[in-house]
Simulated assay, not measured.
Amino acid sequence: MVTITVPEGYGQIIAISLGVIPVLGFIHGVVVGSLRKAAGVPYPHTYATVEQCKSNPKAHQFNCAQRAHSNFLENAPQTVLSILVAGLKYPQLATALGGAWVLFRVLFLHGYVYTDKPQGKGRYNGGLFWFAQAALWGLSAFGVAKDLW
């Protein structure tokens, strides 16, 4: 039998990983959906073509929103898991890193979609999410390894 004891303040871990992060995913979807019609990209197509982007700036903006959303979906699951695991040993640090990850992901989305930087380079505004994510991975691994040794 395995017993898991959650530390005081673990509710904040749950709030970020199972509350705020899914809401941010929903916001990503809303942004993509709101740009689809103006971009002229019908379902089931995921992205506008190069030709569409050349003739319609909204198509390029749609592609940036779609890519920001895809990047979010590629990174959110392991980040949620890392926050939940790291929070068992380091609840305050995991909460802070999870909050930083969310903030940087918001900046990533905004920079990618709503700045005029070419080739989506506005996403670099939130690129620090990688550091928060790596720290969460490290804390998770360290916390688990510490119990195994």
Score class of each variant (00 low, 15 high):
residue 79 T to W: 00
residue 128 L to I: 06
residue 66 Q to R: 13
residue 118 P to Y: 09
residue 7 P to K: 08
residue 129 F to N: 08
residue 77 P to T: 07
residue 11 G to F: 03
residue 16 I to A: 11
residue 62 F to G: 09
residue 137 W to C: 12
residue 112 Y to M: 10
residue 106 V to A: 12
residue 117 K to A: 14
residue 40 G to Y: 05
residue 24 L to N: 09
residue 112 Y to W: 05
residue 43 Y to D: 14
residue 127 G to K: 02
residue 71 N to R: 05
residue 137 W to F: 15
residue 43 Y to C: 11
residue 36 R to A: 12
residue 22 P to Q: 11
residue 68 A to R: 03
residue 136 L to N: 03
residue 141 A to N: 04
residue 39 A to V: 10
residue 141 A to S: 12
residue 24 L to P: 02
residue 13 I to C: 10
residue 89 K to A: 15
residue 70 S to W: 02
residue 129 F to S: 05
residue 122 G to P: 06
residue 89 K to T: 15
residue 106 V to R: 05
residue 149 W to A: 13
residue 115 T to A: 09
residue 28 H to F: 02
residue 29 G to M: 02
residue 79 T to R: 02
residue 57 P to Q: 01
residue 51 E to S: 14
residue 134 A to S: 07
residue 29 G to P: 09
residue 103 L to C: 14
residue 124 Y to T: 09
residue 61 Q to A: 03
residue 38 A to L: 11
residue 41 V to H: 12
residue 125 N to W: 12
residue 44 P to K: 07
residue 87 G to R: 09
residue 69 H to G: 00
residue 103 L to F: 14
residue 36 R to S: 08
residue 127 G to P: 00
residue 137 W to H: 13
residue 15 A to Y: 11
residue 112 Y to E: 01
residue 25 G to C: 07
residue 133 Q to H: 12
residue 27 I to G: 00
residue 81 L to W: 01
residue 109 L to G: 02
residue 70 S to F: 02
residue 132 A to D: 04
residue 35 L to Y: 09
residue 120 G to H: 04
residue 33 G to R: 07
residue 9 G to V: 04
residue 98 G to W: 05
residue 34 S to H: 12
residue 59 A to T: 02
residue 42 P to Q: 07
residue 140 S to H: 08
residue 136 L to D: 02
residue 16 I to C: 07
residue 45 H to M: 14
residue 73 L to E: 04
residue 93 L to Y: 08
residue 13 I to P: 03
residue 33 G to N: 15
residue 76 A to G: 00
residue 97 L to T: 07
residue 99 G to K: 00
residue 92 Q to K: 15
residue 72 F to N: 00
residue 125 N to M: 13
residue 107 L to R: 05
residue 118 P to G: 11
residue 128 L to A: 13
residue 67 R to T: 10
residue 141 A to M: 12
residue 113 V to A: 08
residue 78 Q to T: 12
residue 27 I to L: 14
residue 72 F to T: 10
residue 22 P to M: 01
residue 45 H to D: 12
residue 143 G to E: 04
residue 27 I to E: 02
residue 24 L to D: 00
residue 37 K to A: 15
residue 122 G to C: 05
residue 34 S to A: 15
residue 2 V to T: 13
residue 7 P to L: 03
residue 35 L to S: 10
residue 8 E to I: 11
residue 102 V to S: 06
residue 28 H to G: 07
residue 1 M to D: 08
residue 91 P to M: 04
residue 46 T to E: 13
residue 97 L to P: 00
residue 48 A to K: 05
residue 13 I to S: 05
residue 6 V to I: 15
residue 77 P to D: 03
residue 34 S to I: 06
residue 2 V to L: 13
residue 129 F to L: 06
residue 67 R to H: 05
residue 133 Q to S: 10
residue 18 L to S: 08
residue 26 F to G: 14
residue 79 T to M: 01
residue 51 E to W: 01
residue 40 G to W: 04
residue 96 A to V: 14
residue 55 S to A: 15
residue 51 E to I: 09
residue 95 T to H: 12
residue 142 F to D: 06
residue 109 L to C: 08
residue 100 A to H: 00
residue 3 T to Y: 02
residue 55 S to I: 13
residue 7 P to R: 05
residue 32 V to R: 11
residue 125 N to F: 08
residue 7 P to M: 03
residue 31 V to R: 06
residue 5 T to F: 01
residue 20 V to N: 02
residue 26 F to C: 09
residue 42 P to S: 13
residue 107 L to D: 00
residue 27 I to R: 07
residue 89 K to G: 15
residue 74 E to I: 06
residue 21 I to L: 13
residue 106 V to K: 01
residue 118 P to F: 10
residue 89 K to H: 14
residue 90 Y to S: 14
